[in-house]
Amino acid sequence: MSKEKIRELKKKIEALVIAIPRELEAYEFYLDLAEKSADDAPSKEMFMFLAKQELFHRDHLEKMMNDLQSQLEEELKKGK
């Protein structure tokens, strides 16, 4: 078992745990702006595009975190 690797994985997971809700907050922020731009089609389109990007980021980060968690579990199993 590499304690260094486990520590590194835990740090990365922690960073993602903090980052994921931020993506969702950004999504809600852009969605709100899109709703407020109902009279301005180009703005609404831009905000919707940005909102979708944030959801894409969140999904990407979730996937990365699941991968890291699997790696962490494997490392911990090796140590047992």
Partner: peptide, 10 residues
Amino acid sequence: TRFQGRRTFI
């Protein structure tokens, strides 16, 4: 809710 009850160092 926001952090889905995840356990980390913090």
